[in-house]
C-alpha cells in the first residue's frame, strides 16, 4: 500500500495524461488510437537518443575535472565560454529535451549559467544539420534572419536571466540539478 501511494505520487502526471488519452479515445476512438501510436513512436525515438546521451554524460562526469570545466566555461572564461557553448549547441542532435541533461552536467561541473542558457538557445536554433535543411526548405535569407535574430536574443536573454536569478536563484538551479543526479 505504501509502495502504491509512493508510485502514484511519483507518476501522478503520467496517470493524469494516460487518463486524458483514455478520455480522448472515448470521445474519438480514431484520435485515441493515433495518440497511442504517436506516443509509442515518440518513446521509440526517445530511446534512440537518451540512453547514449546519459552514458556520455556519466563519462563526462567521471573524467572531466571540475577545474577544467571552470577554466573553459566558468564564470571568468569570457568569450571562450560563449564560443564553446556555441560549438556544443551547433554540433548537437536531437530535440530540446535531450539538451537539458547536457546543460545540467555542464552546470554541475561549474559552467557559467548564462553560457549554458546560451547553449540551450543555440541547440534550439542552429543545429548544423538542421540549418542546411532549413535553407533548402525556406531559403537563405529566411534562415540567416532566423539564426542571427534568435541567437542575438538568446545571448542577451541568457545574460538577463542570469542577473534576474541572482546569486540565490542560480544556487537554487544548481540544487535542483543536484537532486537529479
Amino acid at each position: 500500500m505504501k509502495h502504491l501511494i509512493a508510485f502514484i505520487k511519483t507518476y501522478k502526471w503520467l496517470l493524469v495524461l494516460m487518463a486524458g488519452m483514455g478520455l480522448l479515445g472515448l470521445y474519438s476512438p480514431s484520435m485515441g488510437t493515433s495518440a497511442f501510436n504517436l506516443t509509442l513512436v515518440n518513446i521509440q525515438s526517445m530511446l534512440k537518443i537518451l540512453p547514449p546521451i546519459f552514458i556520455l554524460i556519466g563519462l563526462l562526469d567521471a573524467w572531466v575535472p571540475r577545474e577544467t570545466m571552470i577554466r573553459h566555461m566558468g564564470h571568468d572564461s569570457g568569450i571562450k565560454g560563449i564560443l564553446i557553448a556555441f560549438v556544443l549547441g551547433s554540433f548537437a542532435a536531437g530535440p530540446l529535451y535531450a539538451a537539458f541533461p547536457v546543460a545540467a552536467i555542464l552546470l554541475k561541473k561549474g559552467a557559467r549559467l548564462s553560457y549554458v542558457l546560451f547553449f540551450l538557445g543555440v541547440w534550439s536554433t542552429s543545429k548544423l544539420p538542421m540549418v542546411l535543411f532549413e535553407v533548402t526548405s525556406f531559403g537563405l535569407t529566411f534562415t540567416l534572419i532566423h539564426i542571427i535574430s534568435n541567437l542575438t536574443v538568446f545571448l542577451i536573454g541568457a545574460v538577463l536571466i542570469e542577473s534576474a536569478l541572482g546569486e540565490k536563484g542560480s544556487h537554487e538551479v544548481l540544487e535542483s540539478i543536484n537532486q537529479l543526479s
Binding site: A35, F54, D61
Partner: peptide
C-alpha cells in the same frame, strides 16, 4: 559513471514519460 547514468535517467522517468503521452495527444489533436 554507468551507475550515475542509470540513476539520473531513472530519476528523469517520472517527467519524461508524461511528456511522451502529452506529445502523443497533442500530435493527434
Amino acid at each position: 559513471a554507468l551507475k550515475v547514468s542509470y540513476r539520473s535517467i531513472m530519476k528523469l522517468m517520472p517527467a519524461i514519460l508524461p511528456m511522451m503521452f502529452f506529445i502523443g495527444i497533442s500530435l493527434s489533436v
